[in-house]
Computed example of a mutant assay.
Amino acid sequence: MDSAFIIEKSILIVVVFAVTMIMAMYSTWAERKVAAYLQDRVGPNRAGWGGLLQPLADGMKLFAKEEFEPNTKNKFLFFLGPAIAMSAALMTSAVIPWGDKLEIFGRTVILQATDTDSALLYIFAVVSIGVYGIMIGGWASNNKFSLMGAVRAASQMVSYEIAMGLSMIALLMMTGTLSLKEISVQQYGMNWNVFYQPLSFLIFLICAFAEANRTPFDLAECESELIGGYHTEYSSMKMGFYLFAEYANMFISSTIIAVLFFGGYNYPGMAWAVENWGVNIANVIGIAALFAKLCFFIFFFMWIRWTIPRFRYDQLMNLGWKILIPLSIFNIIITGICLLAFK
């Protein structure tokens, strides 16, 4: 492994980290703008043109806020909770293919921090770690409302991880690989997996809402019942970490949906663009195509939040265990039959 390769990957990791943080930061601005549009309001419009500096103002406010700590014997765990939540949200981006490749100074730069044959397993492993951040934070807060929110979050995320994992089995049976890069390559042009696995996509999308604690699955922070839920006792930047982790998870979830079901960085006419415009221009357009797809899903997350009311907790559990899991198993059976019939 030469030093140029290490430098190349280090720069890519820093860029991906910066993009994730910027997208999470400006998703807070977009959330309020989308909510304002749907509710016939203006939204943030004072800090910068169209309120574009509002996320920076919010970040400065969080850093400057006085920090309160509850009377708890588990201060280390109280600090550890938001750190785990934020770290798990950022680690997922390591295996995502952001594009194909670029030719820079005679070197071929692969636009993926690391390519592994078990990328999907890595994503599920990191996602399952994220629940510990919420559970530890809620338990260490020494607050019954926080603990209730943490218990809700843990049971919800574990339940929907099962349906999400089962929905992926049908897709893996069809693609034959766990590599996100290979799955992207197989969707060249408009050969998107959503056309072959629409039920798998629908189940994965619903589970992504639950995993990211987004409405109508935000029972873990249901303010009408639990004040602020699992982060009730948090203030200053520790609360900011939990909020940023939610928006980072939404960004990463949207990206994974785009990669798994909508071709990732592929777009119609990509082969023609490579042949006529060169590798760099064609793949920069591919990066833009991926971001257009994921931005649509980020908007969809926000659209749903301001359209559908949250479920009751028993409805949430019934949907996960009695509907999504049986549907996922049914989809696996149908996929297996189709593969045998048309092999």
Rank of each mutant, 00 (worst) to 15 (best):
S141F: 08
A89N: 09
S200A: 07
I162T: 06
L260E: 07
S253N: 11
A154R: 00
I203Y: 01
T232R: 13
G48A: 07
W321P: 09
S236H: 14
L166F: 15
F251L: 13
R32A: 00
I285V: 15
A36F: 06
Q187P: 13
F17K: 01
I256W: 12
L294G: 00
G106K: 04
C338V: 14
T28P: 03
T20S: 15
I325R: 02
M250P: 08
F195K: 09
S118V: 14
L120C: 05
Y247C: 12
N283H: 10
W98L: 13
K9G: 11
D58R: 08
M60R: 14
M135W: 02
Y160Q: 12
Q315C: 08
D2A: 07
M270G: 00
L111C: 03
N45S: 15
I206D: 00
G138Q: 05
F201C: 02
I337A: 14
G138W: 05
S146G: 09
E246A: 15
M250W: 06
Y196R: 02
G106P: 07
L172Y: 13
W277Q: 06
F124W: 11
L202G: 03
A282Q: 01
N331T: 11
E103K: 06
G176Y: 08
P70Y: 04
W272M: 05
S167H: 08
R312L: 11
L80T: 09
A163T: 06
A210Y: 02
L219F: 08
N71C: 10
D100K: 05
G264H: 05
A163P: 12
Q112Y: 10
L56C: 06
Q315G: 10
V158M: 07
M60K: 11
G130D: 04
I162N: 03
V126I: 14
L205G: 03
F299C: 01
N193A: 05
L53F: 13
F299V: 03
I298N: 03
M157P: 07
S118K: 05
A47C: 04
R152N: 04
G137Y: 12
I257N: 12
A47N: 09
A292T: 01
I134W: 11
S155G: 13
M1D: 10
S179H: 11
A57D: 07
F145S: 13
D2S: 15
I337W: 12
I203E: 01
N191M: 02
F78C: 09
D2C: 05
V151C: 15
D40V: 07
D58I: 12
Y234H: 11
A140H: 13
G189R: 00
I22R: 01
L180C: 10
W98P: 02
E103M: 13
M239K: 12
I110Y: 15
I285L: 08
M157S: 04
V259H: 03
N71T: 14
K101T: 04
W192P: 01
V284E: 00
G133L: 03
E182D: 14
S184G: 14
K61I: 04
P97V: 02
I227L: 07
T175W: 02
F342I: 01
F124L: 14
I206Y: 01
F105S: 06
S235A: 06
